[in-house]
Amino acid sequence: MVRFSVYSRLAVVVLFAVAAATSDKRQSIDDNQVCTTDIEGHQVCYPRLFNATDEFQAVFPGQDLPPGLHVQINMANGERLAKLMAPEPNKDLALTVPESIPVDTPSDNSRQRGFGAGYKPAAAEGFQAHIDLVVELSTSTDRSRTDFLHNTLLAMEDLVHDTRYADELIHRSTGATSLLRLSDANTLWPANIRQLASVVLGTALQNNPEAQESLYVDGALPLFIDNVVRENDARALGKHIFALSALVRGNNRALAEFAGESLRNLRTLRVVGDRKVRDMAEVRVVRLVEDVLNSELHPDFLESAEDMKKVFAASANAWCSELADRLLRELAKPGAEYYERPVAYAHALQVLRSQYPDNCSVSNELQHLAQNKATQLGNDESAADYRQALSELI
C-alpha cells in the first residue's frame, strides 16, 4: 500500500494524475484511503479526504471534501475540481456544489468515520442536489437542460462507486424511480441520458446486496426488464443490460423470478445501430443468460427446489436452441474475422450443454462445422479464444 506521508507534495500530485487517468476499478480499503487498480493490475491509493490548495485540482473517485471549498464540475468532461475559496471563480466551469453544513448528531455506524464528527462532506451535499435535479427533470417535458442533466449523471456515477452514496440514492424512494424513468426508451430523453441513467443504477447496485434487495422488494425488476425490451439504441441497451444484471446477480429472489419467461423472451431482442456496438450489446445478453443459467452459481435451495429446476431447465432448452442457431449462422459465413460474438455463443452453449445435458445437445452438423472452422483458424493467435470455444463443442 502506498503511504503518502513519505512523499513530497509534487510526487503526490503526479501519482494522483496517473491514478485518475488509468483506473478502471475502485475499491475502498479503509476509512482514510481509497484505492484503485490500474490497467496493469497495480494498486494505487490516495487519501479519502481531499487536500485542497489555492489552485483547482481534480477530485478523485471516492474522495470526501472538507467544508469551505469552491467545488465545480467541468461541463465538457464531467470532471470535479476543487480548491480553497477564492473571490474569482473560473468562468469556464459551472455547477458549484454547496459547501458542507454541520451535523448535530453523527450516527454511531456512520461510514464517514475519520473525518471528524462536526460536518458532512461537501460531496454528500452535492450528491443530494444531484438527486433533487434528477427527480425534478425525470417528470419534466423541458429538454433544454439535457446537457446539464448529462453532466449531473456523470457526477453521480462517479460518486455511487462509494457505497455510502449508492445507499443514499437507493434508499431515497424517488431516486431510483426517477433514474428508471429517465432510462425508459418510451420517454423523449435522448439515448445518452437513458444510457447514463442505467449506468448510475447499475453502479449503485453492483456488489451491494442491501440495495439489490431494497429495489427488488419495491417491485423494480419488471421495470429493469422493460427498459431492456423496449430499447432500440444499441449503446443504451448495453447499459440497461448492465443495470439488470447488477440487480439480479447475487439476489436469489430476483434470480428466481427472472430465470423463467423473462429470460427466454430476451431471445427476441433485435438490436440496431453500429455493428460493433450492436455486437457488444448482444454479447452482454448472452453472458447474462450464461450467468443466470449457470447452476454452479445457484444457491443450494434454488437447485433443490423442483419447480425452480424445471424453470432453469426450460430456459436452458430454449436458449440452447437459440445459441446453436446463431452459431450455425456464424460458422456458415465465409471469412468472418469478428470473433467476440461467436465466442460468446460457443462458450455459453458449452456451459448449458454440460450442466443441462437432458435439455441441451449439439447436433452433428454443428459439431462438423465447428471442427472445420477450428481447422481453418489454424494457429491464428487473434482467434485463440474462438478456437478453444469451438474445440469444447466438438
Results as ranks from 00 to 15, higher is better:
residue 184 D to Q: 04
residue 99 E to L: 09
residue 382 S to I: 02
residue 84 L to E: 13
residue 389 A to K: 01
residue 276 K to R: 15
residue 53 T to L: 06
residue 180 L to M: 15
residue 272 V to Y: 12
residue 188 L to G: 14
residue 206 Q to W: 11
residue 291 D to T: 09
residue 377 L to I: 15
residue 41 G to W: 12
residue 290 E to H: 09
residue 275 R to L: 14
residue 116 G to L: 10
residue 355 Q to I: 01
residue 187 T to I: 04
residue 295 S to R: 15
residue 82 A to T: 04
residue 357 P to S: 03
residue 344 A to S: 12
residue 354 S to W: 04
residue 199 V to K: 14
residue 278 R to W: 07
residue 308 M to C: 00
residue 324 A to W: 01
residue 159 L to S: 10
residue 119 Y to M: 05
residue 257 E to H: 08
residue 1 M to E: 14
residue 84 L to D: 09
residue 334 P to F: 12
residue 116 G to R: 07
residue 140 S to I: 00
residue 393 L to H: 04
residue 133 L to H: 08
residue 326 R to K: 14
residue 76 A to G: 01
residue 200 V to W: 10
residue 73 I to M: 07
residue 126 G to R: 03
residue 298 H to N: 00
residue 146 T to D: 13
residue 317 N to W: 05
residue 98 P to F: 09
residue 114 G to S: 08
residue 102 P to R: 07
residue 295 S to K: 14
residue 118 G to H: 10
residue 342 P to M: 08
residue 39 I to D: 07
residue 4 F to H: 05
residue 216 Y to L: 11
residue 320 C to G: 15
residue 183 S to T: 06
residue 256 A to M: 10
residue 175 G to K: 05
residue 140 S to F: 05
residue 267 R to L: 00
residue 36 T to R: 01
residue 385 D to K: 13
residue 106 P to G: 03
residue 183 S to L: 08
residue 304 S to I: 02
residue 51 N to L: 13
residue 203 T to P: 06
residue 146 T to Q: 11
residue 32 N to R: 13
residue 5 S to G: 05
residue 26 R to H: 05
residue 32 N to E: 14
residue 169 L to T: 02
residue 332 A to T: 10
residue 161 H to R: 12
residue 121 P to G: 07
residue 130 H to E: 15
residue 40 E to T: 13
residue 273 G to T: 05
residue 107 S to N: 07
residue 35 C to Q: 05
residue 178 S to P: 06
residue 77 N to T: 10
residue 354 S to C: 02
residue 84 L to R: 13
residue 294 N to G: 02
residue 173 S to P: 08
residue 81 L to C: 03
residue 30 D to V: 03
residue 279 D to A: 13
residue 120 K to C: 05
residue 97 V to W: 15
residue 279 D to Y: 06
residue 368 H to L: 10
residue 175 G to A: 07
residue 131 I to W: 10
residue 211 A to S: 14
residue 66 P to G: 04
